[in-house]
């Protein structure tokens, strides 16, 4: 499991490789909070290489999104497979996040 952090213009892009679950959610949270602390405000979390997410992983995305919005920024999500989309739909979190079909689409108009 790893989080790859890259930059696309003024957007910080985080790739989630593997699972985003209770055992590693704090690592993602700290990675993004460190970026917020250093002044970053635009974030795209890409799930191209993600297996599954549990409720803790969803929870950390919710809390990060709220924190970033409070700082005047935005957290977007991209490239969720059908299983992951199902999770967001079941929990109605698809109403809370802007979810792009691809990384490129997610970066548009940021």
């Amino acid at each position: 499991m790893a989080f790859q952090v890259n930059r696309e213009g003024d957007v910080v892009v985080i790739d989630v490789d593997g699972q985003l679950i209770v055992g590693n959610r704090q690592e993602l949270k700290q990675t993004i909070l460190d970026q917020v602390e250093s002044g970053e405000r635009k974030f795209l979390v890409d799930f191209t290489h993600t297996g599954y997410i549990d409720s803790s992983g969803l929870g950390v995305l919710v809390s990060l999104s709220k924190k970033i919005r409070e700082q005047g920024g935005e957290l977007r999500l991209s490239t969720l497979n059908e299983d992951l989309r199902t999770l967001f739909e079941l929990t109605k979190l698809d109403t809370l996040f802007r979810i792009a079909d691809s990384r490129e689409e997610g970066l548009k108009g940021f």
């Binding site: 549990d54 409720s55 803790s56 969803l58 929870g59 950390v60 919710v62 809390s63 709220k66 999770l87 079941l90 929990t91 109605k92 979190l93 109403t95 809370l96």
Partner: peptide, 17 residues
């Protein structure tokens, strides 16, 4: 957890899922 007042809560989705 899908109620509007709970949608931004970080927890509470485990049993639901």
């Amino acid at each position: 957890p899908t109620a509007p007042e709970n949608i931004e809560c970080p927890g509470g989705r485990g049993i639901f899922l």
